[in-house]
Amino acid sequence: MNRKASLLWSVLAVITLLLSACNGGNSPSSSNDNGEYNAKKQAVELVAPADPGSGWDTTARAIAQTLEKEKLINFPLQVLNEPGATGAVSLSQLVTQHKGDDLKLSITSTPILSNYYYGNSEYSYKDVTMIARLITEYYVIVVPTDSPFQTLDDLLQAINDDPANIALGAAGDDRLPFALIVHESGGDAKKVKFIDYPNGGGDIANALLNGDLDAGISGVSEFRGQIEAGNFRALAVTSKERLKGSVSEIPTVIEQGIDVEFGNWRAIMGPPGMSETAIKYWEDIIKTTLESETFQQFAENNQWDITYLVGDEFQEYLKQSDSDIKTGLEITGQIE
């Protein structure tokens, strides 16, 4: 590079520097000057507390893209990845460093509840502003097609007779719904032989096919393909009512006489101390977002069930979900 070119570069660099200095300086603040949300049109950050491509990230990006495509907001919104310890790292930053910040949102789901009980996080759902539930995914219990177990009852019976004989695959907290089912049907959840597959459904499906596992539990979308192809027999889903579409044949747990309903929800939350204006604003925008055609398409592609819920009903639901998780952890012996 000759001298002239380097000079040009440095001039360019200085200009860029000045420019970026001008439009920068957006210190986060709550900005409801006259009751209007984000009147200054500052950038809002939506945090996905996990790696790119993960479930939380997908949800965050789907929302961001819908907002942009349907022109629902008149300010920029960025998706930020803050992975670490199933959301605990990001949660701690949200609570401690963004208190009262109306311009910060985050995706969350059931680990916010269990992390607290494990002692991996100091904070729980009560320490943040839970804005709205977005989607719910239910669990399905499957066995390979050549398995002797025809119904959930068969499986539970076998576990009751000789728990060491039945290997059941689950990823982390996905054990909890099954533990609750065993517990509710009168068995001892501590004796269930859970085999952990931290990477989730794909590895469990593989282990069911290669004969390592006798049964498995995971989100419906993880096993739907195998069920449709006839490789797996679905014994039960954990939703209140039967699911729609190709999985409508699968009976619910409740139908089979065991009173357990368990959903893995995903929600959007803000930092503690978010203003009423901001909460109201996002409740409305999220509603429109979820109802839009763009998002419906996302939901269909990803096999999500849209289950919008806000306000007191949402708080009530969270309370129930929190107590279910606590019970699940207790009966599996993970907490006292």
């Binding site: 570069w9 440095s10 200085v14 860029t16 520097l17 970026s20 920068g24 960025q78 998706v79």
Partner: peptide
């Protein structure tokens, strides 16, 4: 000195504007 100024600015531009990976901003920019 030229290297020290040009390198970070190019990277910052590529990351923030092309890749949407947001690099930390300080008190000034």
């Amino acid at each position: 000195l030229i290297y020290a100024i040009v390198f970070p600015l190019i990277i910052y531009f590529v990351f923030n504007d092309l890749l949407s990976v947001y690099l930390p901003t300080g008190p000034f920019f």
